[in-house]
Design a binder for these strands. Sequence first.
DNA 1: GCTTGACCTGGAGCGCACTCCAGATTGAAA
DNA 2: TTTCAATCTGGAGTGCGCTCCAGGTCAAGC
Lengths: 117, 117
Amino acid sequence: MYAPSEAARRSGFSLDTLRYYEKIGLLGAVGRTSAGRRVFTDDDLGWLVLFRCLRDTGMPIAEMCRYAELAREGEHTAGERRALLESHAVRVEEQMRLLQNQYDHLREKIRFYERLG
Amino acid sequence: MYAPSEAARRSGFSLDTLRYYEKIGLLGAVGRTSAGRRVFTDDDLGWLVLFRCLRDTGMPIAEMCRYAELAREGEHTAGERRALLESHAVRVEEQMRLLQNQYDHLREKIRFYERLG
DNA sequence: GCTTGACCTGGAGCGCACTCCAGATTGAAA
DNA sequence: TTTCAATCTGGAGTGCGCTCCAGGTCAAGC
């Protein structure tokens, strides 16, 4: 059980982002205290860690929503979820190759300045 | 000498983006035909290739503008330009590490689905 | 009892990087 | 000569992913 600030700290998302993710239905209904304050479970945290991973690798929010929705639909969507992650992973691989390539060009450019003096 | 569409094709930027880059002063004044159509030189193309590299590695446009401005100021800004690229390269390295890490997590998650059947 | 700080809601606003549009012009092909 | 694709300008609009705000509630420490 984590207070909002703790969930934010552990997930790396801001409080506003956590509220936003709940509002758009990315995070399922988060528990509340009797006073209406959010209480995040370990399960919620698990989702947040996954979202952190997917966001950091460039998945759009709409696609994360799709994934979360599938998961809520039950076990029978496991194949589809796996396919979704798999095709994302392929895109990430391309992204890594591009990044490495352009990084190399950047280093080349820097060497040009180094040779200048 | 390249027509706009050719410059777009070679740089990977859209026509609108090329116009936009000129408008905000990222690209210095691009030449025109007597009828007012843009003519891109090899030098322009060189800049576009650099911008492609910097954008692909996540540099914000404002920073590219800064770099371009320095270059226009002359030789004496070479040190500052180099420092700018160098600190960008460091950020890119961090970005690559993060991406690799999260990619590994993603692969782990996919393996979970694979074990499921 | 009072203050303080964390949290609540609904909704508006923002920064970035384009992207699209209207209305006009041009130049090469049929 | 007509037509049509490429291009021009200025300016408005878009999509994404948050981020901020006002006005209010609540719990704990002094």
